[in-house]
Amino acid sequence: MEAAIEVQGAVKSFGPIRAVAGVDLVVGQDEIYGLVGPSGAGKTTLIRMICGLLKRDAGKVRVLGHPIPEEKRKVEGRLGYMPQERALYRDLSVEENLLFFGQLNGMKRDKIRKRTAEILDFMRLTHLKRHLAENLSGGEKQRLSLACALLHRPELLVLDEPTVGLDPALRQEFWKHFHELRDHGHTLLLTTHYLEEAGRCTRVGFMRAGKIQAEGAPAELRARVARVQGGTPSMEEVFLSFASTEGK
């Protein structure tokens, strides 16, 4: 099976800052791949390159079998991107935001209506559907933002901190939903700062200073740290270990 995302030697600098400094990454089609790492590590920059929003300085990026950004057009309808900023039209209502992004992705109106009802229900936003996005709470905006990315059922979901600002119960449900999506053949690439969430990914990449320092299934990574430190380390301890050891 072809990989959903293939990145080879990707580099991106902003002036003197090397935000992404040579990343190799392969995400298979049946994966939930989690990128974790300290703030400023380059996670968002890598993701924006994958979505074709940033030109890379060097390296190769392929998404769903197409080189990016050269064949971006062949990919964009099949991709759902949730930016780190909420990126909503604050002067549109909840359902109008969904309507617009649905139409942009070529959905028919009645299909949008059906999907909107479904997704608002899942996101617990139905009672707010006529409210302006700017009046939503932080978590509500976050849910609407995710809904906008999920609405057209894209094969590949690229989610930048999808669960930040959500209460634990809702995060629990989100993760259930992510696994359902995966079971239905969707691929997910996401970033998170919640390390217990990293434990629920199929694979995790620890990113630091523009590089992926370590990568593997959560159990594998725990085992690797356990060999050095002993005991049964939590993902948190794994994170701290990789963050301090310059990633062996």
Partner: peptide, 11 residues
């Protein structure tokens, strides 16, 4: 607001 990012990731 960052909606531009969404637009250009969409077709």
């Amino acid at each position: 607001d960052g909606t531009f990012e969404r637009l250009w990731a969409a077709p």
